[in-house]
Simulated scan of single mutants.
Amino acid sequence: MIEVSHLRKTFRVARRNAGFSQAVKALFHREYEEIEALSDVSFSIGEGEMVGYIGPNGAGKSSTIKVLSGILTPDGGECRIDGRVPWKERAEHVKHIGVVFGQRSQLWWDVPVIDSFELLKEIYSIPDDLYRKNLSRLTELLELSQLLRTPTRQLSLGQRMRCEIAASLLHSPRVLFLDEPTIGLDAVSKLAVREFIKELNREEKTTVILTTHDMQDIEALASRVILIGKGKILLDGTLDDIRRGGESIDEALAEMYQELKI
């Protein structure tokens, strides 16, 4: 399903010191720093797997997801999802994936949610019968009936995230990328989202890659975890591979980050 081999990605970032004089100096002579977001990243994920992709801030999680979804082009390495190279066959690739970024919306801000869904139907060229079937099912499972006629800007964060997940699944993708999908949600909304993702994976065999700092999400959903730090894969295994005794997963990860200095 997903084959990633020796991915590399470097960003060129401008740097300057504080102060007006430094700002003027930067107009004529700008200093740059090379940031290696991904360094020789390799892994494979089978169809129907639910994988937690974890690591500290700046580890390379979101960069990986953006490469896998075709948003970024890597500097080197290979990636194939269902036989397609995401950044080379993007138009065809996006027909088969769903992406949820917890801090970015794919819904139009000033129109009712159902209007955004209708626009996405046209963008993805979803057949009418499939669209009606998926909309009905998602509305029921995610409890959206009272939200569809509400403009996105008037939704709470938890309500919006439920709508974002529905929007990413209207076209029945085979792969779902979830980047911080429960960020800022209350306990009830988190449980609802987790249960929905588990049911989706169980019934549709959807492959799910989940990036989050909430280890309860990982424990509830993922049978396998991939730990990344400083752009490199540090561990690929189960939660028990991270735990070293009776400690919680958060404590175990904190100790591991300190030992690895990431």
Rank of each mutant, 00 (worst) to 15 (best):
L135K: 01
R132T: 08
G60S: 08
R137W: 00
V175T: 10
V13I: 15
A254L: 14
A222S: 13
G237P: 06
S69H: 07
G48A: 13
A23C: 02
L176S: 07
T139S: 13
E180M: 05
D241N: 10
Y124V: 03
M1I: 08
G76A: 15
G83H: 11
Y131P: 00
D250E: 15
I242A: 01
G48F: 10
I197M: 12
E47P: 08
E118K: 14
D186R: 04
K95Q: 14
L38Q: 06
L148V: 01
I45S: 03
M215E: 05
H29G: 01
D128A: 14
R243W: 02
I35Q: 07
T182S: 15
Y124T: 03
V208Q: 02
V225E: 07
S5N: 15
M161C: 09
T206Q: 11
S189G: 10
T64R: 08
P86G: 05
Y32F: 14
I123M: 14
N134Y: 04
E78G: 12
H93P: 06
Y257A: 10
K133M: 08
P74D: 04
L120T: 04
T150N: 05
A187F: 15
F20V: 13
D40R: 11
L155Q: 01
K9Q: 01
V208E: 01
L155E: 03
I114V: 14
D236W: 11
D214V: 03
N201A: 13
M256N: 02
S168R: 13
I183T: 13
E203L: 15
G98R: 11
D186S: 07
R80G: 00
I228D: 00
Q103K: 07
K198F: 06
R224D: 13
I126W: 03
I228C: 01
I71K: 09
R149Q: 14
G83Y: 10
A91Y: 12
L68W: 06
I183P: 12
G229P: 00
K232R: 14
I197P: 08
T182L: 10
A252G: 01
T206E: 11
D241K: 08
I123H: 11
E143K: 15
I81A: 02
C79Y: 02
S39Y: 09
K198N: 05
E140F: 02
F117D: 06
F196L: 11
S172L: 05
L157E: 12
D75E: 03
D179P: 03
T64L: 09
H171C: 03
A187C: 12
I71W: 04
E251W: 02
L210E: 05
L191T: 13
L7M: 06
I165W: 11
I197C: 08
